[in-house]
Amino acid sequence: MSDATRAEICAVACAEAFRGSGEILASAFGTAPTLGVRLARATFAPDLLLTDGEARLVQGTWPLGAAPDGPVEGHASFRTIFDLVWSGRRHAMMVPTQIDAHGNVNISAIGPYDAPEVQLVGVRGAPGNTLCHPVSYWVPRHSTRVFVPRVDMVCGVGTAAAAAVGRAARHHDLRRVVTDLAVLDFAPTTGTLRLVSVHPGVSAEDVVARTGCPLVIEGDIPATRLPTAAELRLIREVIDPAGLRDKEIAA
């Protein structure tokens, strides 16, 4: 019986989203994804490139909240990052404020656009990211407030909207949505959210109850895999010794 916490299971699920991504820039927002990409590179995805949050590409595995101590292997100013975005050599995991069944994502504003009820950060790079390279999402609190029937402002482009764009959206590639309850992806036939696995202790019914948009559920849903002993050691001793993961997802 593993003693892995929910936060640790989420971190490994985030890492899994980058399995097979190859030699690309991995960009992570939020604690579990940041932990996840470092874990992925330290284990099964050694070719990933990571930045220090500014303009340095850095090797090695360093703790959350600390400055990297590995060798600098490159310089990537924000302008270079934009070039990488548009070249497709990147996989980003972002945090949606709202997401719908087709994977449209809002991080800009809630309510009437001219005078929003809640002004958020802005579209940022979400429109370009979703048109140009693989994108996954991390939802630290799976709820009907996040999973909605319709997002107020489409920042990250979903499957149906991308299909409507046509050939110019041929690089659109939504991968996974990892939440504190489950792992989701997009069913190829409908382009809509599908339940891939539920975290240990969570049922498919729990997920449905906290999802405000349709969810494809095919057959019996397996449990999200547990961290290996080596992964747990890396998480606890190397990448997050301060336990920041427990601030995002309660133990």
Binding site: P127, T130, C155, V157, A169
Partner: peptide, 13 residues
Amino acid sequence: PTRAGLGSDVLTV
């Protein structure tokens, strides 16, 4: 020219 913005509400607003 760019792909960024296509399919999003950037074009709507």
